[in-house]
């Protein structure tokens, strides 16, 4: 079996800091590695779409037992989720992937789109927001988190797309040996042209402007002993904020 793990590079909080693997994709990667540990014949291919300077993050991904990387070099800037999914689809075809694992959403924009879009474009079954996964032969059984803590059990014939959620596993830290081995593994860079994709097809959405989220203003501290403060809070929520 060949597993494709789609990872997204995100910049942590403060601007200018380095690229790291999107948290939810780490769960996907760990799950793929665990499947490989159960079956030696499994190959784990990490797939990413992003700018050229993702090397450090990609070595971190390879420091696990992942086998190699396919890096589609393209700036995501202004590209729609649909565009990303279309690129991933091409790579999945090209690499003859049997199972796609990815995070349920990216931590930076929380769009929660790529898994469903990719599954739809491939016409593969999907389970997104998965906290438990079992693969038996060519059948996947996934537990996904639904409303109010309900769990939906999805059974799918492979190939399929699985979107990892927190709770699927606990990603381990890479070992020193893994970090050294990573440098010897293959990172294949490809361009959109090589995939036969035209840039225009990948947009469809224009960013008009980006601005700071509105500030909350200054916090009004309510003083006094607990009973009084609580009563005043309730009064303010009712009369001033009008939310209760």
């Amino acid at each position: 079996m060949r597993i494709g793990v789609c990872i997204k590079g995100v910049v942590e909080d403060n601007e200018g800091s380095k690229w790291v693997i999107n948290t939810f994709d780490e769960y996907a990667l760990e799950e793929a590695v665990r499947l490989k540990e159960r079956d030696e014949k499994t190959e784990v291919v990490v797939i990413t779409v992003g700018p050229k300077d993702l090397r450090e993050m990609l070595y971190a991904a390879l420091a696990t037992k992942a086998d190699r990387v396919v890096h589609v070099v393209a700036t995501e800037e202004g590209m729609s989720g649909f565009g990303i999914a279309a690129i991933l689809k091409s790579v999945v075809w090209q690499e003859e992937i049997d199972l796609v694992l990815l995070g349920k959403q990216a931590v930076d924009n929380a769009s929660h789109q790529i898994g469903g879009l990719l599954a739809g474009l491939l016409d593969w079954p999907q389970a997104i927001d998965v906290i438990e996964l079992a693969i038996e032969g060519d059948e996947a059984t996934a537990h996904r988190l639904a409303e109010g803590g309900k769990i939906e059990v999805i059974r799918a014939r492979l190939p399929a797309v699985i979107g990892a959620s927190k709770g699927l596993n606990e990603p381990r830290y890479p070992s020193l040996r893994g970090i050294i081995a990573a440098k010897k593994k293959e990172i294949k860079e490809i361009t959109l042209e090589e995939l036969g994709l035209a840039r225009e097809d990948l947009y469809g959405i224009k960013v008009e402007r980006v601005f700071a989220a509105p500030e909350k203003g200054v916090c009004k501290f309510i003083e006094g002993e607990p009973g009084k403060a609580a009563a005043e809070l309730v009064r303010l929520l009712r009369e001033e904020a009008k939310v209760i």
Binding site: S80, G81, F82, G83, A85, A110, S111, H112, Q113, I114, G115, G116, L117, L118, A119, G120, L121, Q126, I128, D129, L145, A146, E147, Y203, G204, I205
Partner: peptide, 23 residues
């Protein structure tokens, strides 16, 4: 953009072959 909507709409967008904007 409920839990159901988050699951359903990306797949629908793929079927229509168009981008979507969530949240």
């Amino acid at each position: 953009s409920t839990l159901l909507g988050k699951d359903l709409f990306p797949r629908i967008a793929a079927m229509f072959s168009v981008p979507m904007i969530s949240d």
